[in-house]
Simulated assay, not measured.
Amino acid sequence: MDGHETPRDPYIHSRGLKIPKHPQITTGRVRGALRGGTYERKECDAVSRVVRAGDCVLELGGGIGYMSTLLSVKKKVARVVSYEANPMLLPYIASVHEANGVKNVEVRNALLAPESGAPVDFHIRQNFLASSLDREADPEGVTGTVQVPRHGLADVLPEVTPDVLVCDIEGAEAELLPAGDWSGLRCAVIELHPQWIGQAGVQAVFDAMQRAGLTYFPKASEAKVVTFRRGW
């Protein structure tokens, strides 16, 4: 357990961060992983090895705001631009940032796509974390549908000019990453989803990083979390 909590403590303490308790988000397995310091452990271990103070980070898949908070507080990055398609998570992400004094993270409720275009349907489920673009994953669980803006890579990358990419987008990496010019990156931490993208999708991600001049870095990679960096 990371830190000491009392029954009245409104926070879960995790890796030195304060994570506000929430009846629908910090439940069960998530709560246990946060308290045990194992939440997003592979990604956290990877960024701890390759991210530097002063970096600009582009995060795809903001989740509950944990990684962006860790980057800001522990790694002292200059800026994080975080894309999170799930609008139901935005107030909670803001509460995580506020609890930890984070002021250098910009959260964009949008989908980063190979090309800009019309908004896309995002399906809300009672379990916030199960909400997704894929209605058919659990059609009975959908409680509402909202439209989320779509931002194109060709516009976003020159605007943000990231040093680091942190990407966990549930299989969309196989389509998105090959469509971008990532040659400005120093490193990238990507969670692969081979169960959805298959061997061809995994290869497409590796090829995209190679075209950008980045090399697979095994010391900061574990299982489905792969890290690439420039040079050796």
Score class of each variant (00 low, 15 high):
Trp196Phe: 14
Glu173Thr: 09
Gly184Met: 14
Asn100Gln: 09
His123Asn: 08
Glu43Asn: 08
Phe206Ile: 00
Tyr216Ala: 11
Ala137Thr: 12
Lys76Ile: 00
Ile64Cys: 06
Val57Thr: 12
Ala46Asp: 08
Ala220Asp: 07
Arg31Phe: 12
Ala78Thr: 09
Gly16His: 04
Ser68Trp: 08
Asp138Trp: 14
Asp45Gly: 01
Leu60Phe: 09
Val102Ala: 08
Asp45Phe: 09
Gly54Ala: 05
Glu84Cys: 02
Pro87Ala: 05
Gly62Phe: 05
Glu222Thr: 09
Glu98Pro: 00
Arg125Met: 08
Gly101Ser: 01
His4Gly: 00
Leu58Ser: 10
Cys187Glu: 03
His123Ile: 07
Ala188Asn: 03
Cys56Ser: 13
Val189Cys: 08
Asp163Phe: 02
Tyr92Leu: 05
Gly171Phe: 04
Tyr92Trp: 06
Pro162Trp: 08
Ile93Arg: 00
Arg186Gln: 15
Thr27Tyr: 02
His123Gly: 00
Phe217Trp: 15
Lys219Gln: 14
Asp155Pro: 00
Leu185Trp: 02
Leu34Asn: 04
Asn109Cys: 14
Glu159Ala: 12
Gly171Ser: 10
Pro149Glu: 04
Val142Tyr: 13
Gly231Met: 08
Ala212Met: 11
Val164Ile: 15
Leu71Asn: 07
Lys76Thr: 09
Glu175Asp: 14
Cys187Tyr: 07
Gln203Gly: 01
Glu59Ile: 12
Ser48Ala: 15
Cys187Arg: 07
Val156Arg: 06
Leu90Gln: 13
Glu106Val: 12
Thr6Asp: 11
Val47Lys: 01
Asp163Asn: 13
Glu5Trp: 02
Gly3Asp: 04
Ser95Leu: 08
Thr227Cys: 13
Ala33Lys: 14
Val47Glu: 07
Lys18Trp: 10
Phe228Ser: 02
Lys219Trp: 07
Leu60Arg: 06
Leu176Arg: 06
Ile25Gly: 02
Pro149Leu: 08
Asp138Thr: 10
Ile25Glu: 01
Arg49Gln: 15
Ala99Asp: 04
Val166Gly: 01
Trp182Glu: 07
Val73Asn: 02
Pro139Leu: 07
Thr227Val: 04
Ala172Tyr: 14
Gly141Leu: 12
Leu214Ile: 13
Gly201Val: 07
Thr227Gln: 07
Asp2Ser: 13
Ser72Met: 09
Thr26Gln: 03
Gly117Gln: 05
Leu165Lys: 02
Met1Asp: 14
Ala110Ile: 05
Ala94Gln: 14
Leu129Arg: 10
Asp2Met: 10
Cys44Gln: 15
Val189Asp: 09
Ile12Met: 03
Gly54Lys: 09
Gly61Ile: 05
Lys219Ile: 00
Arg108Pro: 00
Asp134Thr: 13
Trp182Ile: 03
Thr161Ala: 13
Val51Pro: 02
Leu17Ala: 02
Gln203Val: 11
Ile64Gln: 05
His4Tyr: 12
Pro139Ile: 08
Pro114His: 02
Asp155Asn: 12
Arg8Ile: 09
Gln195Ile: 11
Glu59Phe: 11
Asn86Ser: 11
